[in-house]
Structure formats: C-alpha cells, structure tokens
C-alpha cells in the first residue's frame, strides 16, 4: 500500500505539451488526485484506531435495554453517569483501584531507587566483576515470568504473605529491576566520569555523590523509565492473578477480568463504564505525557 504512495508522490508529471496556465491547474489537480490514496489511507487508519474507543465511550452511557434492543450503532438516549456509579460501587471498582495503587506505588518507588543505584554502581564505578553482574541482570529480561511463578507461590504461601498485597509489591520490585538497571546504566554511560571523580576529590563519599549528583542529574531518565515501568506494573495481569487469591485483594486488571461475575447476568452498561474508566484514565496520562511515553516504551522494547 505505502509503496504505491511513495511512487505517486514522487513521479514527475508528463504533460509538457499543454498551454502553460491550463497545464498548471491540470498538474495541481493531478497532484491532488495522486495524494488522495495517501489521505484515504490516513483517514482509514484514524477510523480503525479511534472508532472502537469512541464506540466504547458511547456504550458506557447506554441502558441495558438499549444494549439488548437497539442497533450497536445507535447513540445513547441520555448522558448520565449511572453506569459509572454502578461500576464504582456495586462493581467494587473503588476497592480495585485502591489495591492497584497500594501494590504499584511502593514497588515503583523501591524498584527505581534500587535500580538507579545499581545502574550507577555498574556503569560509573570501577570494580572487578561488574561486567558479570550486569550480564546477570540482563539475563532477567529474557526469562519468562512463568519460570519463577511457582517457587514464589510456595515461598509466599509458607511465609504467610499470601492473603496480603505484599507478594505483589515484592514481585513487581524484583521483576522490574533488570530493565531499569539496564536502561539506567545506558543513561549513566553518557555522563563523563570526571563529574563524579571531581565530587569525590572534594571529600564526598561515592554514596553521597550518587544521591547529590547522580540522582538529580538523571531526573528525566528516571521519570521516563519510571513511567514505562508504571505501565508494566499497572497493566500486569499474570502476577496479580497468581498472587491475589481473594476478592478484596484484586487489582484493577484482575477485577476487570472478573467483572461480569459481580452481577448475575452481564450488565453491559456498567461493564462498558468499567472498561472506560480503565481506558480513559490511561488516555489522560497519555495526553499529558505522550512524548515521554513514546520515548520510554520504545527504549524498553527489549522487554518484548
């Protein structure tokens, strides 16, 4: 598809024999025609990407009868937030959001602190065996989560942590480390060593140099990596599903997966509202930070 656009937008026009003025309008019109496939393609692309989300939003305002009796393309007859209230209260969404925040917040903070410190030590400091340790962390990016799930389940079961949100906090912190260490080490590589050498000559220890110079210097990088990891943690299903064994512990994603079970039969309005809350929360975040999100997620693509 795109290759034809390439050729049409670049091929010269061959209308040399016509009078000058008519030729000009003719080529202009021709150029417009040649651009048409490209424009149509873009229009189609935008419809394919945005229409499902618009349809979702409209659906969140419909009543159960509207869902069951009217066409899927019909517009909702009213705009009230009944479905949202229903999802938030009867659907237990307030509990799920709270659980997600409790699980993701602390692990994100801890993981970024440990990961940045390790990235600093592995890239800036000079010591025997650092190449090996970096490789050890890198191996963690490759390993499928399934390979560590069962032993962790046993550990959490035997230490009595099952039944709390601790398993999530611990597992997120550890599984986020490989990517963070790898990315932070890459970012520290761009900083000249002399910056840190000078600070240590002033008598400040290396740990202080990290907190006073390294950490503030990496503000943007930390924000970008933290944002990426936030998406991985917040959207995670596998770990949350494995370690949350009761209804009160469910995170947003596990809660959404079991959403229809909260009601006897499928309540389409509240279901759509619940999906909407999940989707448009992300949209707000994305609208504000889309540059950093794009940069960060593509940098984190190694995780697959």
């Amino acid at each position: 598809m795109t290759s034809t656009d390439l050729s049409t937008s670049q091929a010269p026009s061959g209308l040399a024999t016509r009078p000058a003025s008519r030729r000009q309008t003719r080529t202009r019109r021709l150029r417009r025609w040649r651009r048409l496939p490209g424009h149509l393609l873009v229009a189609l692309l935008l419809v394919v990407v945005t229409y499902p989300l618009v349809w979702l939003l409209l659906g969140s305002f419909k009543t159960q009868t509207e869902f069951l009796e009217e066409s899927v393309f019909s517009l909702p007859s009213q705009f009230n937030f009944d479905n949202y209230v229903e999802a938030w209260t009867t659907g237990n969404f307030s509990q799920y959001v709270l659980n997600s925040i409790i699980a993701v917040g602390p692990s994100l903070f801890l993981m970024m602190l440990l990961g940045t410190a390790a990235g600093f030590a592995l890239e800036v400091l000079v010591w025997k065996g650092r190449a090996g340790v970096l490789l050890l962390f890198l191996a963690g990016i490759m390993v499928p989560m399934q390979m560590i799930l069962l032993p962790l389940f046993t550990i959490y079961f035997q230490t009595g942590l099952t039944g709390t949100l601790w398993p999530l906090v611990i597992t997120y912190t550890a599984t986020g480390l490989p990517l963070t260490v790898f990315l932070m080490a890459t970012y520290f590589r761009a900083v000249p060593r002399e910056v840190f050498e000078a600070s240590t000559l002033d008598g400040a220890g290396l740990v202080r140099a990290f907190f006073q110079i390294g950490l503030p210097m990496m503000r943007n990088a930390i924000f970008t990596v933290g944002l990426v990891q936030f998406f991985f943690f917040w959207n995670d299903l596998l770990i949350a599903l494995t370690f949350t064994n009761s209804g009160e512990l469910r995170t947003l994603q596990v809660g959404l997966l079991n959403f229809s079970g909260q009601f006897g039969t499928t309540q389409y309005g509240p279901l759509f509202a619940a999906i909407c809350l999940n989707v448009f929360g992300m949209l707000v975040l994305y609208l504000v930070l889309n540059k950093q999100v794009q940069k960060g997620l593509t940098a984190g693509a190694v995780k697959g």
């Binding site: 440990l114 410190a117 030590a121 962390f137 963690g140 390993v143 611990i170 480390l177």
Partner: peptide, 17 residues
Amino acid sequence: LVGPALIVYSLVMLVPV
C-alpha cells in the same frame, strides 16, 4: 549501591529459576 538490588533480584528471580 549495588548490593540491595542484587540481593532482591537474586532472591526473587534467580533463586526461583
């Protein structure tokens, strides 16, 4: 600097593997 991360990573990811 590297100790805490290495310990957490080893206990929660390497040992379980």
